[in-house]
Design a protein around this nucleic acid. Structure first.
Lengths: 98, 98
DNA sequence: AATGCTTACGGGTCACGTAATGATT
DNA sequence: AATCATTACGTGACCCGTAAGCATT
């Protein structure tokens, strides 16, 4: 499992549409579909029902959506925090000079 | 930023040694070094001091280590939770039949 | 000289985009 | 017919391992 798969999963879950999810990720629809398929294969269960002109989360997918979104938020927060620390890299190295 | 980079970062931080981190990840030392280097480049700051026969986290690295480990734990938990849900996929689809 | 991190190099995997296909309205 | 997800196909990026380089002890 990799973050790019979770990004596609969450984007589709939010947009309820593979095309819009792809636009949001600056990708074409094909890799988004593949990423979700790969995640579903790894999990062993589908996450969406595709049909009726709508993409909808099934129960398993809805439960995992919250967790996936949390992981992505943490990952984004990680990068943001890192940049903040870089802006203020005051203080000695851990354990003193090496 | 991708999970494989965080895996290398956390492994090196835990082991304080690129070689042992590589063994733990079933990789050679080279890709571990590259993954950490890439993360450091993306962040804009080094994370370790290499030298004196020891690898040690600097302050920035220590702060990010905790966050990175948490992300990896969440990612692992995600997979585990997914398998649990697959084992008991009872219940209707969200919003009823499509 | 020995240990260990890093960089160079070549190869194989895989994620991407375009285009064709299938399914549904 | 139109829309949309999926699959096929070729290409480019990139991650990996091996090997050479460099620093420190």
């Amino acid at each position: 499992m990799e973050l790019y798969q979770l990004r596609s999963f969450v984007a589709v879950a939010d947009e309820r549409h593979f095309g819009r999810a792809a636009n949001r990720l600056h990708l074409s629809a094909a890799p988004v579909s593949r990423a979700v398929r790969a995640l579903e294969a790894e999990i062993g269960s589908t996450l969406f029902v595709r049909g009726a002109g709508e993409v909808r989360l099934i129960e398993v997918g809805a439960a995992l959506h919250k967790r996936a979104a949390e992981i992505l938020r943490n990952a984004e927060s990680f990068g943001q925090y890192a940049r903040e620390l870089r802006a203020a890299p005051r203080g000695p190295t851990l354990g003193g000079t090496i």
